[in-house]
Nucleic acid binder design. Structure first.
Lengths: 344, 344
DNA sequence: AGCAATCATTAAAGCGGTTTAATGATTCGG
DNA sequence: CCGAATCATTAAACCGCTTTAATGATTGCT
């Protein structure tokens, strides 16, 4: 590869001039510009992004940190997230670095990544990475609330207690009392928040809240979200003839629907199914179409990106955005008495 | 941010020593190591990835070039691709840079990106980028065949003529003659190849091949793949009572199914639907479950990554991999006479 | 003790750009 | 025609790390 020096020499100018020709930061006379460009073309010269980044301390890259287990695929959530983040970033001329590498615990392995800012998915409790990014002076936006609370860190999140409360309230109003909740993995804040919201709904209705009606997804036990929905439903239904089930995602709901089919349970006649959705298309096109809570994960993603880009221009702003879930009535829940169907 | 110099000074050693402590490329005595590490921790020092990359000419990042229209989302294909590429790369310690930025035509804007290799989706005809990567000496793997043919460039692709032929052959054997093909965008090589494969199948069966039974997706006309399937089916069925339709993707097939429902057409009794699938879950969980051609896009992605990583270690190897499509029989095609259901 | 061999550490030269202060060349008004 | 102002260009320092060749400090051997 030809370097800027080679081009400068061949064109009979200094590297500073060549630099200016390419970066356009300083005006260069038409003749010189042309000469340099021609030489560069002939030599097959392209400015080196890394060297440039080092000099200007900017990469025009946003990091998206999401742990990914070796074997399994990106979840619907992650995909929606990538979607939202990428869309916003590319509009502003930024690219996205998918950082799926597992964290090393060797402190010599931490490095200041080639990114101007970071969006971090699923922060863990007391996540040490948060502190590290602060030290590095790299703008950070979390997706999911920081735990413990931290006023100094930006984040976007669903209002997961509201989500839990809303579906609980809705189902209880429909007269359901034995409700199965196929929750996500137990150690996630979303799981905790949604469950507590649901419990609150029971309380508000003066209904008995029983924790054993909540199941948790586990990577070890369940091969895939669909399998989780299927297996959990098959098992749980043996114990108790639930009349409603809340599924953590559309795909979990698909598993439930399959189980229901096999068990000869009519949806929604005998069983109402409601999905905490992250894939609108899927929810809409399944039969029966899934009544669901629209989580707007993509909005979450683009908001995270927007906030991050904002922070990058204007350091030490902190900002967070809570996105409410919206109930979308479709065909997988039985509609009783009081409620009106509201369509999509 | 503290730099390596600061740490060296504070620890009373040279930068070379600090460098070795972090990179572990040269043994450093236990005492010195410890002292340096402590100082580094106190000062909040983290090695700068960009500077490091510049020095060692390696970024441990793989670029994934995929044009993305400003407004629209990642397609199922792209998602599967990201999945496959990411999985393979992260296993080998590489990260993935999503390069969704539209190409500039200003030659001063081309830069040698901070990547060790590139996977490029949907290369266009005579794609000038291919030549550019060669000049830069950056290993490149295409997803989709190069057009015109080029012996010097690695690529992975489905055998799209085979795919077209296979579904055509299958449907014709089932006795269908009026077959609608909802193909992808006309300017893509996949569209061309699949159509020609299909035409070949007609020829092989001595059936009349009519090009007007092929429709093409267009970003301008169709809001989404689902809409494409829906609209195209609604329109086309007015002209002719097709007995089979080949949908470009699962999502297109969903649109077709919806149209069929609205038109009162029974699937598969009155209409066989077959999807050139890129989302196995979706195909399996829809009612009726979609008979489809499994394209194994994810395999394509991880193969592309594998080849690329290989090339990065061992320059000037060229390699390509053609992945055959497999027919997966489910419930959306009517089974006639001769064929046996093979299940999944 | 004396000399070679071994080992940890260092100084300095890259990597390929950007940027600042200085230098020439040109223009311009008086 | 001269000095000031304007403009394009350059030389050199810098960004933060790696690496090579050189330097001391130890060790081993006779």
């Amino acid at each position: 590869m030809a370097t800027i020096d080679d081009v400068a020499k061949a064109a009979g100018v200094s590297k500073g001039t060549v630099s200016s020709v390419f970066s356009k930061k300083r005006p260069i006379s038409k003749q010189v510009t042309e000469r340099v460009l021609n030489v560069a073309k002939d030599m097959g010269y392209f400015p080196n992004h890394v060297a440039r980044s080092l000099a200007i301390k900017k990469t025009m890259i946003v990091g998206l940190k999401m742990p990914i287990s070796k074997s399994s695929n990106l979840s619907g959530f992650e995909i929606q997230m990538i979607n939202g983040v990428t869309k916003e970033c590319s509009q502003q001329g930024y690219r996205v670095l998918l950082d799926t590498l597992p964290e090393h615990d060797d402190p010599t392995q931490f490095s200041m990544d080639p990114v101007d800012g970071v969006i971090m998915l699923n922060p863990r409790k007391q996540d040490p990475r948060i502190e590290r990014f602060k030290q590095m002076g790299i703008p950070l936006v979390l997706v999911g609330r920081p735990d413990p609370e931290d006023e100094t860190v930006s984040f976007v999140d669903n209002d997961n207690r509201q989500v839990g409360f809303m579906v609980g309230d809705y189902l209880l109003k429909q007269g359901h009392s034995s409700i199965l909740f196929l929750n996500s993995a137990a150690d996630m804040t979303v799981a905790v928040d949604r469950e507590s919201g649901l419990a609150e709904a029971f309380q508000a209705h003066g209904a008995l809240w029983q924790q054993n009606h909540v199941l948790n997804y586990s990577r070890k036990l369940h091969k895939s979200p669909v399998e989780y929905g299927y297996m959990a439903m098959m098992e749980a239904y043996k114990q108790l003839k639930y009349t409603a089930v809340i599924a953590d995602t559309d795909r979990v709901a698909l598993g439930v629907l399959r189980a229901a089919r096999e068990l000869g349970i009519e949806v929604p006649a005998d069983l109402s199914v409601i999905a905490l959705s992250n894939d609108a298309t899927l929810a809409q096109e399944v039969t029966p179409r899934l009544t669901s809570v629209e989580l707007e994960v993509e909005t979450l993603g683009s908001e995270a990106a927007r906030i991050l880009l904002e922070m990058m221009g204007n350091p030490d702003v902190v900002c967070n955005r809570i996105v409410e879930g919206k109930l979308v009535f479709r065909d997988s829940c039985q509609i009783n008495s009081t409620m009106n169907e509201m369509g999509e």
